Computed example of a mutant assay.
Amino acid sequence: MDWSDQKIRSEETWAEIRRQWEAGETGASLARRYQVGLANLWRRRASENWYRPERVDPKPEPVEGWDRWARAKLEEFELRLAEQRAVAMVLAAAMRGEASPAGVPLWHVGFVLEWRAEHLGPEVAARDRAWLTEAHPWAERFWNDEGRLGRAGFLDAVTLMANREAWREEMGLPPGAAEDVP
């Protein structure tokens, strides 16, 4: 047997192959450059637990540039924060009994009614029921046959299904798209 064709490489060579592979070079290019079998390179990689950290591509710069993009995002954030705080103030006033739940955004009515029923007593709960069922007849489903108010999750589901088209429009769903949602 002619051993002159054997491709036995030194440990220093393998250490360099490993460093370059872990730095991101492909196995195929290293196998060609150092004249080692690709299968042998993969075996060494597996047996010696070579590790290549995941490289994350940098986020591409927006067309308008980072400064304008960041200012626009800051404006969006501040607007969203102001809107959330305004809703929080309305919810807080209604939950403390300082305001009627009539001003509460529709999607939060179930949560507020449940809280008011638990914390403000049966008289407030009865007034809330009279107001809501007059304003929204579908809301009668909020209460069971014994007159007990459902839990907030159930109330949210009733509200969503009774106002399905309004929700779909608010979410930007075109007619005919994703008809099974919600």
Rank of each mutant, 00 (worst) to 15 (best):
M1K: 13
D2N: 15
W3V: 15
S4C: 14
E12D: 08
W14A: 03
W14N: 02
E22L: 08
E22Y: 07
G24A: 06
A31M: 11
A31Y: 05
R32N: 07
V36D: 02
G37L: 02
N40P: 01
W42A: 09
W42I: 08
R43E: 06
R52T: 11
R52P: 02
P53W: 01
E54M: 10
D57G: 13
E61F: 14
P62K: 14
G65M: 10
D67G: 03
D67I: 11
R68Y: 05
W69E: 13
E75D: 15
F77G: 11
R80H: 07
A82K: 06
Q84R: 15
R85E: 15
V87F: 02
M89C: 07
M89R: 15
L91C: 04
A92I: 00
A92C: 04
G97D: 00
A99H: 07
S100L: 12
P101T: 03
P101V: 04
G103I: 10
H108W: 12
G110I: 04
L113C: 08
L113E: 05
W115K: 04
W115T: 08
A117G: 04
E118R: 14
L120V: 12
G121I: 09
E123Y: 00
A125R: 01
R127Y: 03
R127A: 10
R129C: 00
W131V: 05
E134D: 09
A139D: 03
F142M: 05
F142W: 12
G147T: 01
R148H: 01
G150D: 04
R151H: 01
R151C: 01
G153I: 02
N163S: 10
E165T: 05
W167N: 05
E169A: 14
E169H: 09
E169R: 14
P174G: 06
P175Q: 11
A177Q: 09
E179A: 03
V181W: 11
P182C: 06
P182D: 02
